Amino acid sequence: MTHPRPDAGTSGSVPRGAGPHLLAWAELLRLPALFTVPGDALAGAAAAGGRPGPRTLLAAGSSLCLYEAGMALNDWADRGEDAAERPHRPLPSGRVRPAAAVVAAGAPTAAGRGRAPRAGRGAVAVAVPLAATVWAYDLVLKRTPAGPAAMAAARGLDLLLGAAATGRGVRTALPSAAVLATHTLAVTAVSRGETRGGSPIAPLAALAATGSLTCSLTRGPASARTPPGATHVVRGVLTAAYAATSARPLLHAALNPSPQLTQRAVGGGIRAMIPLQAALAARSGALGPALLTAALAPAARRFAKKVSIT
């Protein structure tokens, strides 16, 4: 759910008319990355064979709360490191108090878990381990070898939350969750070189993963719920968008694994989650949710020009 950090470089240009306090919170909560969250619930519901409804919205709301909790907790846990390496971040710069960040982590976690029961018993069974994974990643696992796997598990669980909210179970959504988790694992591994750069191994491995996932999206089973022609065309376009968004910056980082290009590769990987989610929904035959998810990409790009997505 949370996105890999630390981030390198600046936090983006300041939007005109935005107060310093609002900008600080937009940076802390990674405003552009919020647009990568609703697609998890939509793709999960599609994979489970359900149609988006009120429970899907509740699952998406729970996901957004847990995601933002993870963002705030991430910066709180990194405040000492950020003071030395990224003093412009909201906490070390003094624009947001550490106590406020803790509240911003705890309150959304409670809200996210509180919404889950309204989405059904199955959603509760997923939301509880999801919240635990988010907190375990930020506080314990992030700097360990298990960090990328924990991040991947969180994102996979988030998709399963959308599936569970349909009341149809999560078994049929497991392949889609595995695709999203694999992409997240690759991006998280690359993110470990954001501040130092260094070896091209992680970007090359992530590039290979992107190629493999692209092939799986084109070969995967198509649902009979929509006309095959429409399904194949939309799925093909969305799969191509995913591959382009993810692969190009990864190739640059592999050729020159500098901190700047590595950070761009991570940002591309985060943005690529939107067309990936949309392609997964289209593969399940849910063209409406697929197009709705894809429509979030322009907003993510726009806000990423103002506030860093990583």
Rank of each mutant, 00 (worst) to 15 (best):
N256D: 15
R89H: 02
P259G: 11
A60W: 07
A72L: 02
A297K: 14
A164G: 12
G53V: 06
C215E: 09
R155D: 03
V134S: 08
R302A: 14
A222K: 06
P298L: 05
K306H: 11
A153M: 13
R51I: 07
A110T: 08
A105N: 06
A136M: 03
G19Q: 13
A41D: 04
P203G: 04
A186D: 04
S223W: 00
A110S: 06
G236W: 02
H183M: 10
A177M: 03
G167E: 04
I201F: 05
F303H: 09
G53I: 01
G285C: 02
L204Y: 07
E85D: 15
E85L: 15
R89G: 05
R264N: 14
R113H: 08
L31F: 15
P4N: 12
T218A: 12
W25L: 03
A146Q: 01
P221N: 08
R115G: 10
R301G: 06
T2D: 10
D7Y: 13
R168L: 15
R86W: 00
H183W: 13
R89P: 08
L141A: 12
G162I: 11
G17T: 14
M151G: 05
G12A: 03
P289V: 00
V234K: 07
A290K: 12
P98N: 11
L73M: 11
R5A: 15
L185F: 15
A240Q: 04
W76L: 15
A24K: 04
L141F: 07
A26K: 12
L42W: 07
A105M: 04
L280H: 09
G269M: 09
G50L: 06
L185I: 03
R5G: 15
R171G: 02
P289D: 03
M71E: 13
G211L: 08
R302Y: 07
T226E: 09
A152Q: 01
A125V: 12
P298N: 09
A205C: 10
A149C: 10
V266E: 14
S191K: 02
L29I: 02
T166M: 09
A281E: 10
H252I: 11
A290S: 13
K305D: 13
G114T: 04
P148N: 09
P87M: 00
G193W: 06
A272T: 07
P298I: 05
H21F: 05
P129T: 14
A281L: 07
A107L: 15
K305M: 06
R168H: 13
G288W: 08
L291I: 11
A189M: 09
